[in-house]
Design a protein around this nucleic acid. Structure first.
Lengths: 112, 112
DNA sequence: AGGAAGCGTTAGACATCGCTTACACATTGT
DNA sequence: ACAATGTGTAAGCGATGTCTAACGCTTCCT
């Protein structure tokens, strides 16, 4: 089962439909049925996707009468972003060190 | 089924064991059994995780005799990173615009 | 040649995912 | 009170994911 915050965020984002949903509610609040209207799948399917996004902290919900207004919550991506950035940066830094060890900056005297 | 590069990368990274594997091969090449030695699950399970990581382009393999040397391939994370960064930045930018519209920067003449 | 070492692959069990259909529940409008 | 609207939830189904046990293929060593 999905456990950590990162697992939840990465898992949520790995689904194309959910990424599209995120884009839909990135700049505007939208109702559940408005969102569902953009897809071919049934409304309950979207409702379930919204549940996954909400539990992952990637969207917020606000009740307004019988409507439920969804909106993206970018902070939910923080941990995932940081993990990726850390991994990426450390990895490339080490690659660089390695390359420079194997192919040192050209020194005329080394005669490579 | 997983289709795009992003789907594959995000899906691969959503698994805690696979993230640990990535860390193990981030700075050093490691053999499959070396990697498997760090986990409680059986070696075939790890071999399958390595398969997922390889198909997602997150690791490279190099055969050396009967050994298979794995190593992280950070470029495999590029698309995912860019999507996250774009989403994050655009989202926050719009939030800022909105806040400033609802609570304009204090102007003495506006008498808020 | 023959055994051991290092790995991948397959088959099967079991959980989880993404979907649909059907239903339940609250809010709004008459 | 009653119907319509907007939505979540439950049940069930096929597909996919993760694991183990068993097997097969190379490569190395004697």
């Amino acid at each position: 089962m999905v456990v950590s915050v990162m697992d939840a965020a990465a898992h949520a984002v790995a689904e194309p439909t959910r990424r599209e949903i995120l884009h839909l509610v990135r700049d505007t609040e939208r109702t559940a049925s408005d969102i569902a209207g953009h897809f071919d799948v049934t409304r309950p399917a979207i409702s379930q996707h919204l549940g996954v996004l909400r539990e992952a902290g990637l969207v917020t919900v606000r009740a307004d009468g019988r409507k439920r207004l969804y909106r993206a919550r970018p902070e939910g991506l923080t941990e995932l972003r940081r993990w990726l950035d850390d991994f990426w940066r450390t990895s490339l830094r080490n690659l660089k060190v390695e390359v420079e060890r194997d192919h040192p900056p050209t020194d005329p005297r080394s005669g490579e």
